[in-house]
């Protein structure tokens, strides 16, 4: 057995005065923006309610240029190390509860403190989407799970269903298959996952795949026992027995904080232009909270860089 050690501590950060650039979000977008802004000489702060963001829920990252099979957490630690090396201030484990703008932006933290900033970056990321079927709430934490990396060890020698067909679902299936007795992937349409992941999935001998199959209901007694599915090809319903259901069907933007403050689309994503500017002057957005069509670590990071450079340009001209 080998054990890695994780770290996350609150550091004292001076919040008085006015910041040039404050990132709300400590995922790849917020981190990279912090790095670029600091290097431009801006007084910079990164507020990270969860240091690393969704990287922490990613078991393995193989598609970030320069990293060959690194855990999401390890990549997040490298990012943070880079920020510390560049003296970027990171305020961890605190949420922003409100944002207003007069001449300056005022960000209120959950502990009541207020941060003043000339420009801000909205990089709050996203959270797992729910299936929205009967039984999902009832069996949450009684078999229904949304964090494969957290909960996979609890399903040793058990039968698990994974809902979804994207990269995160297939990665979850590959990981869980190493622990569980059997894994069944249920997805309502066809795979969207990368071929390289599907090839890996096909090597597992304990995985069954049901595409064009929709989950209608999660059923059980004191815990989840099976799911009722609709096989779309034959238009027939049947039940699949399982001890657990991991739901990996994509994400929804964490944009509640800025509803009404900046323009969002019908999916709740913040609308940005080519410079990552939002509809509100001085407010930029980057990463999974935006209307970027592809949600990827490298894209979020690149958007963060663009946003910081654009914010710097904005500060120079205003």
């Amino acid at each position: 057995m080998s054990f890695s050690l994780g770290f996350s501590f609150k550091k004292e950060v001076a919040l008085d005065g006015i910041f040039d650039f404050v990132s709300i979000g400590g995922g790849p977008a917020g981190y990279n923006a912090g790095l670029y802004a600091k290097r431009k000489g801006l007084r910079t702060l990164v507020i990270a309610p969860k240091k690393g963001g969704q990287l922490l829920n990613t078991s393995s990252v193989d598609n970030y240029l320069g990293t060959i099979e690194l855990s999401g957490e390890a990549l997040s630690e490298r990012f943070l190390e880079h920020l510390e090396h560049t003296d970027v201030e990171v305020l961890g484990d605190l949420h922003v509860t409100s944002i207003t703008k007069h001449d300056l932006f005022e960000l209120t933290l959950e502990d009541g403190r207020v941060i003043k900033a000339r420009t801000i970056l909205l990089a709050m990321g996203s959270h797992p989407r729910q299936l929205g079927v009967k039984g999902e709430a009832e069996f949450a934490n009684a078999g229904v799970a949304y964090c494969a990396i957290c909960d996979a060890p609890l399903y040793k020698n058990k039968n698990v269903i994974i809902a979804g067909g994207g990269n995160s679902a297939v990665e979850a299936a590959i990981d869980v298959a190493k622990i569980a007795k059997h894994v069944t992937i249920v997805h309502r349409s066809t795979f969207r996952a990368d071929q390289i992941l599907l090839d890996k999935l096909n090597q597992a001998t304990n995985v069954t795949i049901h595409l064009q199959t929709q989950i209608l209901e999660i059923r059980g007694d004191d815990r989840m026992r099976n799911v009722l599915v609709l096989d779309k090809a034959f238009n027939s319903e049947r039940s699949i027995e399982a001890d657990g259901l991991f739901i990996e069907i994509g994400n929804l933007p964490n944009s509640d904080l800025v509803k009404g403050l900046v323009e969002t689309n019908d999916r709740g994503e913040i609308v940005v232009n080519g410079k990552q500017a939002t509809s509100l002057e001085g407010a930029f957005a980057a990463g999974d909270v935006t209307d970027a069509p592809y949600k990827q670590i490298i894209i979020a990071a690149a958007q963060g860089a663009t946003a910081a450079l654009a914010a710097n340009e904005y500060l120079n001209t205003h």
Binding site: G6, S8, G52, L56, N57, E73, C147, I149, C150, D151
Partner: peptide, 10 residues
């Protein structure tokens, strides 16, 4: 908890 769970220490 599990050791891989980032939400657990809280």
């Amino acid at each position: 908890v599990t050791l891989m769970c980032p939400h657990c220490p809280g």
